[in-house]
Design a protein around this nucleic acid. Structure first.
Length: 424
RNA sequence: GUGACUGUAGCUCAGCUGGUUAGAGCGUCGGUCUGUGGAACCGAAGGCCGCGGGUCCGAAUCCCGUCAGUCACCCCA
């Protein structure tokens, strides 16, 4: 008994009509990125494992437990990419793109993380992201943030929120970390096990805990803003000013801390509350040290990654179920002779039209053909049967208004082309 | 990795405390009906009741395991 074959855990098939919605979103993303002057980069779906260990950080959850790592036949350790930033930097270094000055790249495609699936979290998911290299200016942060926000506004996602924060740089972060530890140390015994673990590993994440036992101490914890060095403070203020200038609404959330090692200064997140526990649609920030850490020159950088599954979930939650619009034409041939006459016309129309031309080749009754046309959401049907053949005509039916007209078979091509292109 | 809930027809689900041949709606196919569609009526096809084991005279039903889904924790897009 052969076992039933299913998609691997945490993966899914994208079927019509959802696949059409994805295509639309993707083309919109390509256009948006282009208007901001970003060019697409595509990198391999797998990389040497070492790239992620060095790029994302050995201590990160991604590297410690979420990577799809395998050994190939040549004994190399490879990993399906769990994120795009490290591969993009690797490719830019490999092809010496940084020597060209400022570099604006975007990407769209799948990522892989070995996690327990839940709402908004899968083992294969898809991200759209941008990386702006070569500018340390706050304007670059704002450019990247407003690009992300532009996508959100284009779809009128009203419940999306932008939250920003600054997590300082290597000069001021150690001092803040020390201050945080000093604040929490006396209370750790009464706090969650989780909080104690974070105190060891990554004190900044203490601020992130949702455990009620920790709430009280988090509320009284010092904010990073008070510890920012002069340069970081100036940068953060400039980011806020520019965001107001370009009309992007935001709130400062001192509890936003990115999980990956390479972030510094600006961090931001766009969230929606229709997503359940995984509320973040988009996350990003500045990572001025990463290029150097991967063996390149000092190149400041800022970027974000946006989860396409989550974005689609928000869109679906917000969109009212609307009937698919009718498009194109169904060619209905009643009988073999009619099929022979209609097939060349269908081929010709497919060459000339942007709209779909459907045709079913079974011997069916007219009724059955019309049902199929309806299911295809065709706008028109052209019907050719023995009567029409005899009179040299063809019936053109408007499926929306349920009206027929007869026209000479020879002029069908031109008339149909005009009607279908006009849309209605 | 941890926890809770759920796996019965292509889809949505019913099947009570174990009791003979497994149920509905939608969908599909056919007919009423060679010729006008979001329809009606009639009929048909479609099920190792997720998989494996156990208890029992008897398991879709109870127990254990396993796989999968869902949601949450963790973490993040």
């Amino acid at each position: 008994m052969p076992e039933k074959l299913t998609a691997p855990r945490g993966t899914s098939d994208l079927l019509p009509p959802e696949s059409a919605r994805w295509s639309e979103l993707e083309s919109r993303i390509h256009r948006l990125a282009a208007t901001f002057g970003y060019a697409e980069i595509r990198t391999p779906i797998f990389e040497t494992t070492q790239l992620f260990v060095r790029g994302v950080g050995e201590q990160s959850d991604i590297v410690e437990k979420e990577m799809y790592t395998f050994t190939d036949r040549g004994g190399r350790s490879l990993t399906l990419r769990p994120e795009w930033t490290a591969p993009v930097v690797r490719a830019a270094l490999e092809h010496d793109l940084f020597s060209w000055g400022p570099l604006r790249l975007y990407y769209i495609g799948p990522i892989f993380r070995y996690e327990r699936p839940q709402r908004g979290r899968y083992r294969q998911s898809h991200q759209f992201g941008v990386e702006s290299f070569g500018s340390a200016a706050p304007e670059a942060d704002v450019e990247v943030i407003s690009l992300a926000w532009e996508l959100v506004s284009a779809y009128a996602i009203t419940d999306a929120h932008l939250e920003i924060n600054s997590i300082g740089d290597e000069r001021c972060r150690p001092q803040y970390r020390a201050a945080l530890l000093a604040h929490f140390e006396p209370h750790l015994a009464s706090m969650s096990a989780d909080a104690r673990r974070r105190a060891e590993r990554n004190p900044l994440r203490l601020l992130d805990s949702k455990d009620p036992a920790d709430e009280r101490h988090i509320a009284t914890a010092p904010a990073f803003e008070a510890f920012l060095c002069a340069e970081c403070r100036e940068h953060f203020e400039a980011v806020k000013t520019y965001l107001q200038l370009v009309d992007v609404p935001f709130t400062v959330n001192p509890r936003i801390v990115r999980g990956l090692d390479y972030y510094g200064r600006t961090v931001f997140e766009i969230t929606s509350n229709v997503l359940g526990a995984q509320s973040s649609i988009c996350g990003g920030g500045r990572y001025d040290g990463l290029v150097k850490a991967l063996g390149g020159p000092e190149v400041p950088a800022v970027g974000f990654a946006l989860g396409l599954e989550r974005f689609m979930m928000v869109l679906e939650a917000l969109s009212r179920a609307s009937a698919r619009p009718r498009r194109g034409i169904e060619a209905i041939a009643l009988g073999a002779q009619a099929r022979t006459l209609l097939t060349p016309l269908v081929t010709e129309l497919r060459r000339r039209l942007e709209h779909p031309v459907f045709m079913d080749y079974q011997d069916r009754k007219l009724l059955a053909h019309l049902k199929i046309a309806d299911r295809n959401r065709a706008r028109y049907a052209m019907i050719l049967g023995s009567e029409e053949i005899a009179s040299g005509e063809i019936v053109l039916r408007d499926l929306e208004h349920r009206t027929d007209r007869r026209l000479p078979f020879d002029s069908a091509k031109v008339v149909v082309e005009q009607l279908v292109e006009a849309g209605d």
